[in-house]
């Protein structure tokens, strides 16, 4: 894939990722009969949250999809997808804090401390912040190997996010269960790949008598 086509695809993907925001904006202003329904604030919070989770899962799907269908250039778009996950989750928090609680700090603190599903949601967002801040090329260079370690945190963040969704549902857990299932598949894929690499590596050791683990310990 040429540099130019990557750039064009990136621009197209950027616009695509903005579509949910565009639709929500039209609904907020009631353009062309669109609306957020009778309880617009709750709807807005839920929709931002769900798009944040969607983007987290899409980001986590990049590596497996690249492996399975061999599209190496997919990796070029992963950072943007991850940043959109952060953006939508930040909007999720801001609509909650601003529109729902009107930035009433004591009330928000009480929520975060006393309501476990909000505690874990807030934790996930705070953990996501350093990942977003270190997503620039220069930060990647500066952090080197530690960058990768830091960004593995996204697994924890996704688990916390899905738990947060599951926990706040009143009774019908079907939808968060679907999210949990998809996340489990994406994480299991990584475990399986890692396990197979380790096994292959240990066979190599016995066969060749020298350590090739370092070589096989690439990112999965």
């Amino acid at each position: 894939m040429t540099q130019k086509s990557v750039r064009i695809l990136k621009a197209a993907l950027f616009l695509l990722c903005l579509l949910p925001l565009g639709k929500l904006t039209l609904e907020v202003f009631g353009v062309a009969g669109m609306s957020l329904g009778a309880n617009p604030i709750e709807e807005l919070i839920h929709r931002f949250g769900k798009w944040g989770l969607n983007f987290l899962l899409i980001t986590l799907a990049v590596t497996p999809v690249r492996h399975l269908i061999g599209l190496a250039w997919l990796m070029r778009f992963r950072r943007m997808l991850g940043l959109f996950a952060f953006f939508y989750l930040l909007m999720h928090f801001l609509t909650y804090a601003g529109l729902d609680q009107r930035f009433d700090i004591p009330v928000i603190v009480e929520d975060v401390v006393e309501r476990p599903y909000i505690t874990i949601g807030m934790t996930a967002l705070l953990l996501l912040l350093p990942l977003a801040l270190t997503s620039t090329n220069s930060m990647m260079r500066r952090l080197g190997r530690r960058w990768q370690k830091l960004h593995r945190m996204v697994y924890v963040i996704a688990i916390l996010g899905v738990c947060h969704f599951y926990w706040q549902v009143k009774q019908d857990i079907l939808e968060p269960l679907i999210y949990a299932l998809i996340l489990a598949l994406l994480l299991c894929y990584r475990l399986v790949v890692r396990w197979r690499r380790n096994r292959a590596a240990s066979r190599q050791i016995t066969r060749n008598g020298h350590d090739r683990i370092a070589h096989t310990r690439r990112t999965i």
Partner: peptide, 10 residues
């Protein structure tokens, strides 16, 4: 809606 430069049919 007008302020945002849009026409509101809703």
């Amino acid at each position: 809606a007008t302020a945002a430069g849009m026409t509101s049919l809703a």
